[in-house]
Computed example of a mutant assay.
Amino acid sequence: MPVRPAAPPATDVVGLALEVLAAQGLTRPAANAALASLAKERGLTVARCAALVVAAVDGRSG
């Protein structure tokens, strides 16, 4: 069984998620708003929602 590396700090995960959203064509303010909206809709913290976005792009499940 492969060993998973430790999760990056929450601020790094949020930054990575914002980069992912920006790569989809969103501006930085729009990416921030989208991430906050996704988190609010799902009842999650922004950091947790960002981690799920990064995991989805990375091919891992949350």
Rank of each mutant, 00 (worst) to 15 (best):
P9C: 11
A36V: 11
L44V: 01
E19Q: 09
V20D: 12
D58S: 14
S61D: 07
L16D: 10
K40P: 01
L52H: 00
G62S: 08
L26F: 09
P2W: 09
L21V: 09
G25M: 10
L52Q: 10
A30I: 03
A23R: 10
G43N: 07
G59Y: 05
V13Q: 09
L21K: 02
S61V: 09
N32D: 15
A34K: 13
T11W: 00
V14H: 02
A23L: 10
A31D: 01
A47D: 15
L16Y: 02
P5D: 11
R60V: 14
G59I: 08
L18P: 04
M1A: 11
P5W: 01
L44I: 01
V57M: 07
Q24V: 06
A10I: 00
L52V: 00
A39N: 07
A34R: 14
L35G: 11
P8I: 10
M1F: 08
A6W: 04
T27K: 09
L38A: 10
A39H: 04
G59D: 07
L16P: 00
L44Q: 11
D58K: 05
A39R: 06
A56H: 04
E19F: 00
A17R: 08
A31S: 05
G25D: 13
P5R: 08
L18Q: 11
M1N: 06
A55V: 11
C49H: 07
T45Q: 12
R28M: 13
A7S: 10
L18N: 06
L21Q: 11
G43K: 06
L44C: 01
G43P: 09
M1T: 09
A36D: 12
G15N: 13
A33K: 06
A17D: 13
M1Y: 01
P5F: 06
V57S: 06
L16M: 10
A17P: 12
E19Y: 02
D58V: 09
V20F: 05
P5T: 08
A31E: 00
P5M: 04
G62M: 02
V3S: 11
T27H: 02
S61A: 06
E19L: 04
P29R: 09
K40F: 07
A56Y: 01
R60D: 13
S61C: 00
V54Q: 07
P9G: 11
G62E: 09
C49A: 15
A51V: 06
A22Q: 15
A47Q: 08
S37P: 03
S61H: 03
S37G: 12
S37I: 00
T27D: 14
